[in-house]
């Protein structure tokens, strides 16, 4: 059974279409990155999954139920806008969220203690939440959302505002969830997280899905490979290779874009015939570059303005490839 099924869901706010016929299926145990620029409709979609908002049309099935409200105790949800009661103690906060998630008694106390220990907050149990630093309250929010060991976890922008240490902690938490077989969806606009953590990524822009697939599959599909060669000798013959494009050759350095099935291996062989190679590098595009390009192309194709966060012209070639 799939953990989540969205069928052509649509959500409008007035005349603004926030989510525009989105389809999505998440298999049980999958880890999915839900990507897109600001205003793409990620949060709206997640809120509809959590039945905080209701779609204008389309169907939602969460853990086999049409309404997440029926299975809220099996879902862990961390909203993008998150806070805790400032005056409540750390321990009481966990107790409260545990109670709301259907835990009770010694089971709840044990889970609360374990959760605090797992993020190094045990000594803060009796302190009020307002005494915590920002990083500590972020950790508390995570464990509060996950205290009931949900089988399906939805995190909206979990990485936003985290310092590097908490980012690592969160990644560790993700690994634990994955090992436990938890289905995990998280939204982000930082592609490097998605690249490292996800089985699959889904990219949306302006409420529509642009891309849905495995990370390596996507990379393969959008690979525009660049080869960089450095050394002593003559690199000019490389420009003549069939399939070599945009060749830049100067001094002891050559850069080529590989097209028409030209393999890096062939380039290296050819280079070694006329030069002593000291450096050879195949540069691959990362998700970031692919997504920036896709979002821009999509926005332009639909006659929409490019999202402000992506307003700078994206490199025609993968990042790092044309740095001189």
């Amino acid at each position: 059974m799939s953990a989540l099924e969205l069928t052509r869901i649509v959500k409008r706010f007035g005349t603004f279409v926030a989510v525009d016929g989105l389809d999505l299926t998440v298999a049980s145990g999958e880890v999915i990155g839900f990507l897109g620029p600001n205003g793409a409709g990620k949060t709206t979609t997640i809120r509809m999954v959590m039945s905080i908002l209701h779609p204008d049309s389309g169907a939602i099935s969460v853990l086999g139920h049409p309404d997440a409200a029926e299975v809220k105790d099996r879902i862990g949800y961390l909203p993008e806008e998150r806070g805790l009661y400032r005056k409540m103690s750390v321990g009481a906060t966990l107790q409260y969220f545990g109670h709301l998630k259907g835990l009770s008694g010694s089971e709840l106390s044990r889970r609360a203690d374990e959760s605090l220990a797992s993020v190094g907050l045990s000594e803060w149990k009796r302190k009020p939440v307002e005494a915590l630093s920002k990083g500590m309250s972020q950790k508390l929010q995570f464990v509060a959302a996950l205290i009931h060991r949900p089988e399906f976890v939805i995190l909206d922008e979990p990485f936003s505002g985290l310092d590097p240490i908490n980012t690592e902690l969160l990644k560790r938490l993700f690994q634990e969830l994955r090992q436990r077989g938890t289905t995990l969806i998280f939204s982000t606009h930082q592609m490097e997280h998605a690249e490292r953590l996800c089985d699959r990524v889904v990219l949306i822009n302006r409420g529509r899905k642009l891309l849905d697939g495995g990370v390596s599959e996507i990379r393969e599909r959008f690979s525009t490979r660049i080869v960089l060669v450095e050394g002593e000798g003559d690199f000019r013959p490389l420009a003549a290779l069939p399939g070599a494009a945009d060749a830049e050759i100067a001094g002891g350095r050559a850069r080529l874009r590989l097209t028409d099935g030209l393999e890096p291996h062939t380039v290296l062989q050819r280079a070694m015939e006329t030069a002593r190679v000291t450096r050879f590098e195949v540069q691959r595009p990362d998700l970031h570059d692919i997504f920036v390009r896709l979002v821009q192309e999509d926005s332009q194709a639909r006659g929409l303005s490019v999202p402000a966060s992506l307003a700078k012209p994206a490199p025609a070639l993968p990042r790092g490839a044309n740095v001189e």
Partner: peptide
């Protein structure tokens, strides 16, 4: 207070409005 300190949505993950 719950709205301005963004507690509401945390709560809505567990209870309906």
């Amino acid at each position: 207070e719950e709205k301005s300190s963004r507690i509401v949505e945390m709560l809505l993950s567990a209870v309906s409005p």
